[in-house]
Amino acid sequence: MSERPFWNPYVAGVVLGLVLLGSFLVMGFGLGSSGGVTRFAVAGAHLFAPKAVETNAYFSQYFGPGKHVLEDWLVFEVLGVFLGGVLGAYSAGRLKLGIEKGPRVTTARRLALAVVGGIFMGFAARLARGCTSGQALTGGAALSLGSWVFMMAVFTGGYLVAPLVRREWR
């Protein structure tokens, strides 16, 4: 069974926009993902160092009587993103183990760079109070000034660094 093609980007964008609009119309807020990923990380760290996490000035907001760090809308939404991604990839014949990289980079280097880039993103998403989903997409549609500033900065940062990691992709 061969792979099904990706959707046309404009069509995919419109459907994505309808999902975002649906979230606004039902819940009153938009999409997100780094928040959910952060909560998973905090829950993991909590297993090893509960005191350090609970008393942390930033993470303490996730804890308290009657609160569970994973009992959050974004956590369930990220779980859904995973399941939706699985359904999408499998039904299109694209669900198989692999590593995405350019032809001129070793697997080890690519994975190391993915971790390093991830660390930057995780830090940046907390600093900016959201990532491409929670700020750029959601805040952009809600016309938040800070989200538009964030979005332009993301593209700027990407274009500035892209020439330095050209070997990873091209």
Partner: peptide
Amino acid sequence: SLVVIMGLLVPLAMEAIEARRHLPSVAL
């Protein structure tokens, strides 16, 4: 979320898709 959707409906859908479209099975 965990029992009905993740544990039952998604596997059900994937097994149905697998049979219908002759896709390779996945350990997931």
